[in-house]
Amino acid sequence: MLGWHDGAMSSDAPTEASTDSTGDLLMRIAGGDRAAFERLFTDQSRLLLALILRIVKSRSLAEEVLQECFAEVWTRCGRFDPERGTGRAWLITLCRRRAIDCVRSVQSQQDRDFADGLRSSAETGDQVEQTVIDRAESDRTVTALKVLPPEQSTPIVMAFYQGLTHAQISENLKVPLGTIKSRIRDGMKKLRDELEASR
């Protein structure tokens, strides 16, 4: 069984739409409710920062991205549609996208080797000083993914946290693309089954 309730966000895990407290906060923020904005920050910022940090691997950059994400939450959360998913999923998607955009933006300013070092996981050799500082954090495996065998969790991590396409993952791991797709599909389904079983 997964440790779904290990993280601070898990207390907010909705079991049905009506218990989507993050979604409720987003709806209030869309109406200009500053107290709801502060509450959202208090509830979610540490987990969102952890997610961003895993992607950008630099604390100072991660905090900049977090700030951009909350600016987007404040200005654009009217776009959140509770019928298309939970508030938490909306937030995670927003932060992940922003963080990957940030990494790509940094990459475009650097030579290829350095970009690879910044983007890829710690074992490829990190080259910025924040990465050294944060290396211990980067090396930890995300709790929920421990339920999967490495051949399934690795491509999921590479797609979600490193923003790689499945074709790039196939190339990097030297595994046929069809196999990578199967592993991603089966891994995601297993994660989903575990989540549903834990509710």
């Binding site: 290990d6 993280g7 601070a8 966000m9 604390r59 939970t86 994660l191 989540l195």
Partner: peptide, 11 residues
Amino acid sequence: MAETAGSDEPA
């Protein structure tokens, strides 16, 4: 994926 990210250690 939100649950997966949410199982991470907060920063």
